[in-house]
Design a protein around this nucleic acid. Structure first.
Lengths: 192, 192
DNA sequence: TAAAAAATTAGCACTTGGTACTAACATCAG
DNA sequence: CTGATGTTAGTACCAAGTGCTAATTTTTTA
């Protein structure tokens, strides 16, 4: 037997999500209904026609191409910052950040958030990580909201170094901690 | 005066690169020639029609979307691996990996390559980084090919720990080095 | 079981953004 | 003046639709 209308529409929706490049005609033969039925289904589900779908995918891509660099500069959203003092950022862990096999966040994402924050907190055009000692205290999972705090703990102006202590927490539990030694170009002999 | 054919075609090409979503009609009115002329121009320049262009952009995007997860599991391509012994991976640094301002690779990408390799070299379903001490020895730039070597230096089976020493080089110069302490589920008392 | 409602199919005119092709002009160089 | 090059115009056609009306089939329900 064929699918019921509900089943068909559900499958239709998924099919189009999986492959937005499919035409009504292909869908019709796949589900063994007429093209008109497919079109009625699309209307009911508010699924746009092939060309619109493709345009959407393309537009998305085009947008991302332009934006990907600036957005990526800091991983996580900085929600508070006092240059050369402290900074705070939020990073929402999603499915794409975890290992498929065990659902635990890959370490480099936590490091990326921490490292980006360490770079951001420094009031200088050029800040680079020189050395870092880090601890992955507790596994983080998809859905977790990681809050990173960076605290500038010291400076060595003769060597152009800044020292930062960093803690990341999920619901007030420490999941990641690290010390960062950063290099900066300008000596910046103390602001204020 | 209008543009010469050559000038027009050059501008046409750039216009379409900048915005692949433009129609022949829009181009015609922009260059103050007929739609037919635009079409002849496109033929001579082998520029496909609007829909094909959009489809290309979309297909590109789609491909990347699908691949991003599996590829991302390991940053860089593993070119050699002996489980629980050593591993080697290559990572080509591109524009998107560097800071816009100074062209230096963001630290977390080097860490990601290193960390992923440390995870990969362990012969276990579940490997997690517990602790790591890392040095960013020399700045890395776009175009550089980073080769990471991971060497298993020790184990503490009672604590389910594996110790790894990692070195990343660009043209035989060390750019990044680190020690990783990894956690694994299975004790794995030494494979042959 | 027959009538009503829901679902499906069919057909036609029309739309966009083109291709393919033919034919008519325009402009300029030799 | 003639020929080459460039430009414009017009026609038929295509894919992948929308919008609309109407007919047919299936299902529900009174």
């Amino acid at each position: 037997m064929k699918y019921s209308k509900k089943e068909r529409q559900k499958l239709l929706q998924q099919t189009i999500i999986d492959n937005p490049f499919v035409t009504d005609e292909q869908l019709a033969s796949q589900f063994k209904v007429s093209v008109q039925t497919i079109r009625l289904d699309r209307m009911e589900l508010s699924i746009p026609e092939l060309r619109e779908r493709i345009k959407d995918v393309a537009a998305h891509n085009f947008e991302n191409d332009v934006k990907s660099l600036p957005i990526d500069e800091v991983i996580g959203d900085i929600i508070d910052i006092e240059l050369d003092e402290r900074a705070l950022s939020i990073f929402d862990v999603k499915e794409e950040h975890v290992f498929q096999r065990n659902g635990i966040a890959r370490g480099h994402h936590l490091f990326a958030q921490a490292n980006s924050l360490a770079v951001a907190v420094i009031d200088d055009d050029l800040a680079l990580t020189v050395h870092s000692e880090i601890h992955f205290v507790k596994p983080v999972r998809a859905g977790d909201r990681v809050i990173s705090k960076a605290l500038v703990t010291g400076k060595d102006d003769s060597k152009s170094r800044t020292f930062i202590e960093l803690t990341s927490t999920v619901e007030n539990e420490v999941v990641f901690a690290g010390k960062f030694e950063m290099y900066r170009t300008k000596g910046q002999g103390g602001n204020q």
